[in-house]
Computed example of a mutant assay.
Amino acid sequence: MFTGLVSDVGAVLSVSGEGDLRRITIQASYDPASIALGASIACSGPCLTAVSVEPAEGGCVFAVDAAAETLARTTVGSWVAGTRINLERSLKIGDELGGHLVTGHVDGLAEIVERETVTADAWGASERFTLRAPAAVKKFIAEKGSVCLDGTSLTVNSVQDDLFSVLLIPHTLQVTTWGERRAGDRLNLEVDLIARYAARLAEAGAD
């Protein structure tokens, strides 16, 4: 379980394998002694398992395996050496829940339709992103609700059919990969866990 609060931005070092299984090595600033084999790490949204960990200058290099479902539903299949990704370690009992409950199970890909500067001051510029949600999950996105995009917990500002918007403050743009995002980019989208279950219960009650 995660919160959608990014704790590091890693970089893909290599991608090996073809077809339905790929091994991806990622450089991060995490202490290698703190990552156990089999640990769950959210990598720009998807929860992936660390299958190897080695010390490296400035932190560590860890490897994850991505199988068919992950490659089909997320952006992982498009990662290459140099791709920067948002990272978050899994929650521990007693950790602060500063974002919202995130499982690391991606529901689909959202596409950025527009990026616009909303305010700019001495601390930087805030940016509004308008995105298009996949048809199958747009019903789970509500104004003032939560979404997880590329591993980042965000509040939905507005919703109109399959379009929704989020606002990124300067700090978030600086410490995540959001500063690099442009119209046309696709992001890993996980809808709010509570919204998903509420909708399912409503459907069951209508039967």
Rank of each mutant, 00 (worst) to 15 (best):
V51D: 06
K138W: 00
D185N: 14
V159D: 07
R132F: 00
T119Q: 13
V76A: 10
A42C: 07
E180C: 11
V137F: 03
S7W: 04
G104D: 08
A199S: 07
S165Y: 09
A198C: 03
E88W: 04
L87G: 01
H100T: 04
S146N: 04
A202S: 07
L154M: 11
T103W: 13
A135L: 02
E143H: 05
A136N: 00
G184F: 07
S14G: 10
R128S: 08
T49N: 10
V80T: 15
G4M: 01
A110R: 00
Q27Y: 09
T155V: 05
V137T: 05
D185G: 05
K138Y: 02
Q174W: 05
F2H: 02
D185A: 03
G124A: 09
D192E: 05
K144M: 05
T119Y: 08
V137A: 05
D192G: 01
L163Y: 12
D207Y: 11
P32G: 12
G184D: 10
G145A: 05
S52I: 11
A120G: 08
K139I: 13
A63E: 01
A11I: 14
G124Y: 08
V53G: 05
K92D: 12
E18T: 15
G108S: 02
G205N: 13
D121A: 04
E88G: 05
W79C: 10
V61G: 00
A195N: 01
S78I: 02
T70D: 03
V191M: 04
A39V: 08
I169Y: 13
G17C: 00
V118E: 02
D31A: 13
G17H: 02
S16G: 06
A66T: 04
S78M: 10
A39F: 09
S7M: 11
I112A: 00
G108T: 02
A125S: 15
V106P: 03
S78H: 12
G99S: 03
A68E: 13
A198T: 03
P134K: 00
V6A: 03
R128K: 14
D121V: 05
K92E: 14
V12I: 10
I24W: 12
Q160I: 07
A136R: 01
C43L: 12
S16Q: 13
R22Y: 05
